[in-house]
Design a protein around this nucleic acid. Structure first.
Lengths: 142, 142
DNA sequence: CAATATTATCATGAGGTTATGGTGATTTCC
DNA sequence: GGAAATCACCATAACCTCATGATAATATTG
């Protein structure tokens, strides 16, 4: 469902959200903790910084931290940097027919749309904060 | 959501299902009709034949046709040849944590599972025949 | 300012997906 | 049996994703 890269990004962001307030984490520690290749994670983190999701600082005591409160960061915002979740106006016909996107789509299209919207809605409405609070309630890490 | 290849296969199968009973279609005609590169489609059709979804015959008057009734052919059977739809026991934790798949997954996992199962169910329960009958009811082609 | 730690950036490569072109095998038709 | 049509199969390449390694830029510390 998600690409490897998007999954890595999600893991990284959730891990950073677990850190105490305003405490940053080095890329190498993060990489070890979430099991992602160090150099590749660096590139992903950089993308997240440029998107305004993370803040970074260089040099000793440098590292990465969330640029916002975790409850304000949707999973979609993280994932959509790397994957095309079928969101917005391009939630198109399953079989790629552009003319099946209009006001009167066929019934199969409706069934497909319901299913694909369930995915979109999940990513749109779930925040990184939700994942954390779920963990605190005793569920296993997601 | 689907790979290009899986989408091509779906279009080809639906197009073949539209043909009159027991009438086969040449790969080149099919390719033109559904807008897929001729040679690449050939490889996809060959895969569908080997999977028992299509029958092929060579020589003059050769071509491809469905090997079964369209209402007995699920979209999953077509698509799963090319893509891994998250079906079966590997419908795993969104973030790739194996330990979150057990009997007591966290609430976010539940929400994710509901959404991803909607996708799986669509592919499992929708048949090529459904797509055709929907077309006949006046919907636009899917 | 010098040494060090850390992110930023670039060059490269392995492997998969998508695509192209050509050759061989088989069937139909004369 | 020969010619033509068609699928079967193989070799190749463009492009993307995932990954590695090296170097540059920048911040901290003494």
């Amino acid at each position: 469902m998600l690409s490897g890269t998007a999954e890595y990004a999600l893991r990284a962001v959730v891990c950073l959200a677990r850190q105490p307030e305003n405490q940053s984490m080095r890329a190498s520690d993060l990489a070890e903790q979430i099991g992602v290749p160090r150099n590749y994670l660096g590139k992903i983190l950089h993308d997240l910084v440029r998107a305004g999701i993370l803040d970074s600082s260089r040099g000793k005591k440098g590292g990465f931290k969330l640029a916002m409160r975790s409850q304000d960061l949707t999973l979609l915002r993280v994932v959509s940097l790397f994957d095309n979740i079928g969101v917005g106006p391009d939630r198109r016909c399953l079989m790629g027919r552009p003319e099946c996107d209009g006001a009167d789509p066929c019934p199969v299209h409706h069934r497909w749309k319901d299913a694909s919207e369930a995915i979109s809605t999940f990513f749109e409405e779930t925040t990184v904060g939700d994942v954390l609070s779920d963990e605190r309630r005793g569920g296993r890490p997601t």
